[in-house]
């Protein structure tokens, strides 16, 4: 007699990203224990994440100990730019993946000099969709939108704008050359995330950079220790 088979349905109710979430929780607990404030920077490609980071790091020199994890599908171009600031940086090439995940951060952190660190910046892969659902263990997400992208990005990519604690508008110096309405952009952000802090910046003129630095340092001071 052959063995018979029967069909069985197993109730599961497990979060699909439970393994990533578990690693992210481990990362977060470790960051808190070390007193490291961790920011996950997310934007479209070319919005100015690396340029903002370079200016941020130069401004924080001698005041905050910082390090950077750079996420890109390919190349170490961004990490090279960060390295010129003198702060430690680790490049993560995600290959076919369009986002960083918690295990990549765990590995990158183990290879970074993090003793005595105040702020760890994670520059995610340039993409407004894929990084949204992957918790890295950061304390907050910050989304950048450059004025050349138009005012509608929060409506087109609402999840990442909803999940971010702050929205940094970049390249504000270009406004005179564009039909861009920053008030409309802010209104669109509010529809998706009324609590978000909105910062207008230009790395070209340095306008708004101090507000961004003040916000970062205030957020760090709120970190539970």
């Amino acid at each position: 007699m052959g063995k018979s088979t029967k069909t069985q349905t197993i109730p599961v109710k497990t979060r699909i990203l439970s393994e990533n979430d578990r690693l992210a929780a481990e990362n977060r607990a470790w960051f808190v224990k070390q007193g490291i404030f961790v920011v996950n920077l997310i934007s479209s490609p070319g919005s100015g994440k690396t340029t903002l980071l370079v200016d941020t790091l130069n401004a924080l020199k001698g005041k905050q100990h910082c390090a950077v994890i750079e996420g890109d599908q390919q190349t170490s171009l961004d990490a090279n730019r960060i390295a010129e600031t003198g702060f430690p940086v680790r490049q993560v090439n995600t290959g076919r993946a369009c986002h960083l995940d918690a295990s990549m951060i765990k590995n990158a952190v183990s290879e970074l000099a993090v003793t005595g660190l105040d702020i760890l910046f994670i520059e995610n892969v340039g993409n407004l969709i894929c990084p949204a659902e992957f918790d890295l263990g950061e304390h907050c997400k910050v989304v950048l939108m450059s004025v050349t992208e138009g005012e509608d990005k929060p409506l087109k990519y609402p999840v990442i704008f909803h999940l971010s604690r702050a929205v940094v508008m970049t390249k504000m110096d270009l406004i005179p050359h564009l039909r861009y309405d920053p008030l409309l952009a802010e209104k669109n952000i509010r529809k998706i995330n009324p609590q978000a802090v909105i910062l207008r910046t230009s790395t070209y003129t340095s306008d708004g950079l101090q507000d961004w630095l003040d916000w970062l340092v205030t957020q760090k001071s709120h970190l539970p220790l």
């Binding site: 018979s4 029967k6 069909t7 069985q8 197993i10 109730p11 599961v12 109710k13 497990t14």
Partner: peptide
Amino acid sequence: EMVVKSISGEKIG
């Protein structure tokens, strides 16, 4: 939500 709700499969016996 992003949840695996249930899984069905064949089992011997």
